[in-house]
Amino acid sequence: MDLAELHALLTPEGLRLVDDLGEIGSTDDVAAAVSRLRRDGHSPDLVSAVVDQARLRTRARAKFDTFAGRMLFTRAGLEQATRLGVAARHAARFRAAGIERVADLGCGIGGDALGMAGLGLNVLAVDADEVTAALAAYNLAPFGDAVAVQHGRAEDTDLSGVDAVWLDPARRTAGHTETTRVGAGDWSPSLEWVFDLAERMPAGIKLGPAFDRARIPHGVEAQWISVDGSTIELVVWSGILARPGVARSALVIRGDSAAELTAPADSADEPVRTLGEFIHEPEGAVIRARLIGEVARELEAGMVAPGIAYLTGDAAVTSPFVQTFRVREQLPFDVKRLGAALRERGIGTLEIKKRGVDIDPAVLRTKLKLRGDASATLILTKMDGKRVAILADRVSATT
């Protein structure tokens, strides 16, 4: 979104048109909306801004539920915004620590600030991009004086009267009309500045889940978060926001339920063991937090191979920290023989999972020439230094 589209959108006419359009999902819906608005005499800038917002609101429901219906977005801003449910969990940590006023430095379209204000915190929201800051101000307007939005650099923000800070340093550059991801060495604000600030006052720092662990400061809590099977972020907590005795945390959220695994340090893996009745695939947050060993001990399981994040065991237990599969049998790894074996068993629907082997599941699926009404999971990995193919069935969490 550029300034011309922003100015066209932030008018009574523009906002009314967005509300009137409702949800727009398909390309056909977009084409029909554009044609109708142009036929009604609206300008190209206004039509582009309005239709884009209607489409973004439709996509945003996955993150913001009904709140999306009165918010405004940029495409990248929506992509990078924290899900409202996760933002509320972050906000709850600030509130539990007795924090009253938070500076959200690099607020984007206001997702985290929305969670904080929704739990009664006072928020100073700051973004270096003019368009993004304007959208954040609109999105946070319902909270009135509890939220102040500023267009400016995090480094230049007056933090007097602020109890703690929330930072998302890696995802935007000042002066752009569209929020963008920056390169590995182009953090804005710089990591040095961010981590120095976190030493001086309580902070939550949102980073990508693949962030270099060697760069995580000492004396903080590092919390990896998975939502519905996807590992979405790493949050580094400092000061009173870091829980005593917790250096590593894996928070796993599925639907409305959540479970957390914590430890004072990385956990040592359990020894390798022979293939049992079950294979367990740890959640991404557990793997990133290096707490696989903690889960293995809980499940009475061992590693299938050194350095491969699959566990195996015989205990019929389930855990929120893994996806569990009941082993049927081992099959030959040769593609032709494997395809023949699957067709013989009538398996036409196949979930393919892999770790430790260089295979493209999409290409393999084509070569297997599946047919039949049955379904199964195929796990491709290494055991005893050799590639193995394991036919299995998913075990539901209620089994």
Rank of each mutant, 00 (worst) to 15 (best):
A8D: 12
A8S: 15
E13L: 04
R16L: 03
D20Q: 00
I24F: 00
S26K: 01
A32P: 11
R38G: 07
R39D: 15
D40E: 15
V51Q: 06
V51P: 04
F64L: 04
R70W: 10
T74M: 03
E79W: 10
H90C: 00
V102A: 05
L105H: 02
G110D: 04
A113L: 04
A117K: 00
L119I: 00
G120Q: 03
D129P: 04
A133N: 05
N139R: 01
L159A: 05
G161E: 11
R172H: 11
G175T: 08
H176N: 13
T179H: 07
G183D: 15
D196F: 08
E199T: 15
F211Q: 07
F211G: 06
D212H: 12
A214D: 15
P217K: 05
A242R: 10
A250Q: 05
V252W: 04
R254C: 11
D256A: 13
D256P: 04
S257P: 02
A258I: 02
E260R: 04
L261S: 09
V272D: 10
E281W: 09
I287P: 09
R290E: 12
I292T: 14
P306H: 13
G307H: 09
G307L: 07
I308G: 07
Y310A: 12
Y310K: 08
S319P: 12
R328N: 15
P332V: 14
F333Q: 04
D334V: 14
E351Q: 09
I359G: 09
A362D: 07
K369L: 13
K369C: 12
L378A: 14
R394I: 09
